[in-house]
Amino acid sequence: MEFTQLWDKLNKRFPERLTLATESGDKQIQVKVDDLIAVVDYIKNDSALAFNFLRLISAVDTGKEFSCVYHFYSYQHAHGLILTVSLNRANPTLPSLSSRYATADWLERECYDMMGFNFLEHPELRRILLPHDWDGYPLRKDYQQPAEYHGTKH
């Protein structure tokens, strides 16, 4: 399915709830945090969409706002879809997809680890790449590198 068809279909199902990002490059569809689960359930289970493969979850900090970007793909129909969710900078909370896509478990843990996103209902939201007692979320633009860690200075 081409992107325009996808967009039409989604727009018809969720009228007034989705917005199309207008930057160059890959086309993204912006979803509100509250709608995320409904949209994902729809695109996963609808037989004409069948996005059964969650490629990537990226936590993004543009300096102004947080967003979470989901790359989906469908093996049946060979089409892709990108959803973005804008998050509250003070309290970046969003629902977890780990019960729908098993791969989301680790991908969301990485987002938590690096950017401090709080995924609700995640089975074990703890750090994955960094040590468990690391302070702060390094990929945030306002992150201050700690002067030392367990006696090791950089």
């Binding site: 930057e23 890959d26 490629r55 970007v69």
Partner: peptide, 9 residues
């Protein structure tokens, strides 16, 4: 690079 985003698998 022009402002925007890209993911190329």
């Amino acid at each position: 690079l022009p402002a925007g985003n890209v993911y190329l698998p």
